[in-house]
Nucleic acid binder design. Structure first.
Length: 539
DNA sequence: CCGGGGGCCT
DNA sequence: AGGCCCC
């Protein structure tokens, strides 16, 4: 018999607010909201009790709630750091590190292996069906190696809520696995609260979508298990637009297709078209979905309506696939202003690269290959589509021998401004409401920290072939050496750190002037701030 | 009056 | 390069 996966979805409650409360505990007692530009992006539960809404216009909110405290949340650094910290912490507890991050405040945990292992232990105990032994408890092991690591839980009841409030027909097989999953979820949430101080909502089910929806059904600081036998009933009352992965476009296409024959008044009237999962399931078909959404999306969304979601938890990589920084404006028409904004954004972008792409030794873990500039013309509206242009990212970005100011100026003048010209066309007259600078196509640097260092440590550089291998492995650095020419590159710097070949090393002495107070590593001064964040996050 | 990100697919 | 989706 095929066993179902056990998936836990976690969602940090009012995340940006929790982070702000972490920095300023006094906020816990008062109603406050986090704003970005003219919008309330989230608010704490004290404020929600008063009626403050997420995504409410700031002007409306302050008018309606004069005492509402407003915190600016346009700089995401603290939220990103906290998000990473909680993700790392959760990952420690999940075997194989199977944890996927969605946005800053949600995680999917594939705990199937942990459940399998513990179910086997439970079977060995010959515990009879729970109904006949309602008090039987079980020690859930969190470690395969150390039998003392884990927690005690009852196997005769679930932790937290049950979706639709329904007890399953039995507590065996997949149902028992979910019961154990609910206790594991509770334990993980408790650890996160006790040690990190963040409350969360949890969902437990047999796939990502059901787990996520279950978790959303009881908030905040609660959890919900959804047994597969109730999944269809649970889903049927939902509007299809509330199913994760069914967005506005898909919903609209689906409803248009279903109600194609109906009169145009009903078409445009809100609420005239029944969009419940139940209704759509009965009026549409898999074939219809495939026809209007394409094979892969149609198939996927049709399955979702039936509680079927085959997508695996994709462990989130330590390396982001892109890094972007943006700002929005009412109107931007002056090239000098654009230049100034791009300079500011580029400073932040470099910071982000030092934080997310450099290890604590100052070595690059990944090299973005592409620079992308996006904008939004005001002519297509504040919610119109973005347009973008890309080009190869100049390798000077990875140079440790140029000042940060120099790199910023280089990028703005040689990269972003030419791309901006491409975007606005020949007329040179423009009005844009958004600028976004990004580095994408991030290639993983060859793993060097242990392997290559020990290689350098043991070997002399007498074997040309082996040296060749090293050079080829570090091709991004080699490429940079061609551009930089007279300056030393990272490989040379490495030789120097290892006490090799001091004399032909040429780099600005000031560049490596700053020792880290934690580890003593010397590095370029402008990377130190980012470097300290690594220590704070425990690498 | 108009969030700042991020991922995957086509 | 853009479109969809998520938060």
């Amino acid at each position: 018999m095929l066993r179902s996966p056990v998936i836990i979805a976690l969602d940090w409650d009012a995340f940006y607010c929790s982070v702000e409360e972490h920095f300023n505990p006094e906020l816990k007692k008062i109603a406050f909201a986090v704003k970005q530009k003219g919008i309330i992006c989230t608010c704490n539960y004290v404020a929600r009790a008063l009626g403050v809404k997420k995504l409410q216009l700031l002007v409306d909110a302050v008018k309606q709630f004069p005492d509402l405290v407003i915190v600016n949340g346009e700089d995401l650094s603290r939220y990103r750091d906290a998000s990473k910290e909680l993700w790392y912490f959760a990952r420690e507890m999940v075997w194989g590190g199977k944890v996927e991050r969605l946005g800053f405040d949600e995680l999917f945990l594939d705990v199937t292996d942990m459940i399998d292992f513990n179910i086997a232990l439970l079977d060995d105990l010959h515990v009879p069906p729970a109904s006949s032994h309602p008090v039987s408890t079980f020690f859930f092991r969190m470690s395969k190696e150390d039998p003392s690591v884990g927690f005690s839980c009852p196997v005769s009841s679930v932790a937290g809520n049950m979706a639709a409030g329904s007890l399953p027909g039995d507590f065996e097989g997949d149902n028992l696995r979910l019961v154990l999953g609910s206790h594991l979820c509770h334990y993980i949430r408790s650890q996160i609260l006790d040690i990190k101080g963040y409350t969360s909502s949890g969902g437990v089910s047999i796939n990502k979508t059901l787990a996520k929806m279950a978790g959303s059904s009881h908030k905040p600081n609660q959890q919900t298990v959804l047994f597969p036998e109730f999944a269809q009933d649970f889903l049927d009352t939902y509007d299809i637009g509330r199913i994760p992965w069914i967005g506005h476009k898909s919903k609209s296409l689906i409803l248009d297709a279903i109600y194609k024959g109906t009169d145009s008044v009903n078409h445009t009237m809100e609420g005239a078209r029944d969009a419940t999962v139940f209704n759509v399931r009965h009026l549409a078909s898999k074939q219809l979905f495939v026809n209007i959404l394409g094979q892969s999306s149609g198939d996927k969304l049709w399955n979702l309506l039936h509680g079927v979601d085959q997508t695996a938890v994709q462990p989130t990589s330590d390396m982001p696939t892109q890094i972007s920084i943006e700002d929005t404006f009412k109107s931007l028409t002056d090239l000098i202003e654009v230049h100034n904004v791009l300079r500011r954004l580029t400073y932040s972008l470099l910071d982000r690269m030092y934080i997310d792409l450099m290890d604590s030794n100052g070595d690059w873990l990944g090299h973005p290959q592409t620079a992308r500039l996006s904008t939004r013309p005001r002519s297509t509206g504040y919610y119109g589509p973005r347009i973008s242009r890309s080009e190869s990212l100049p390798s000077i970005v990875f140079s440790s021998s140029h000042s940060r100011d120099y790199i910023v100026d280089y990028l703005v003048d040689r990269c972003w401004m030419p791309l901006f010209s491409k975007l606005i066309g020949d007329a040179k007259i423009f009005d844009v409401v958004l600028l976004n600078v990004a580095v994408v196509n991030i290639e993983k640097a060859p793993t060097k920290s242990s392997d290559i260092t020990s290689f350098f440590g043991k070997k002399r550089y007498t074997d040309d072939n082996e040296l060749d291998v090293v050079h080829r492995a570090e091709s991004p650095v080699t490429k940079r050496a061609k551009v930089v020419g007279e300056y030393a590159d990272l490989e040379v710097a490495h030789f120097n750190f290892l006490g090799e070949d001091d004399e032909d090393v040429i780099f600005e002495e000031d560049s490596y002037d700053e020792p880290c107070v934690v580890c003593g590593q010397r590095m370029i001064s402008f990377a130190l701030e980012a470097h300290m964040r690594f220590h704070e996050l425990g690498d």
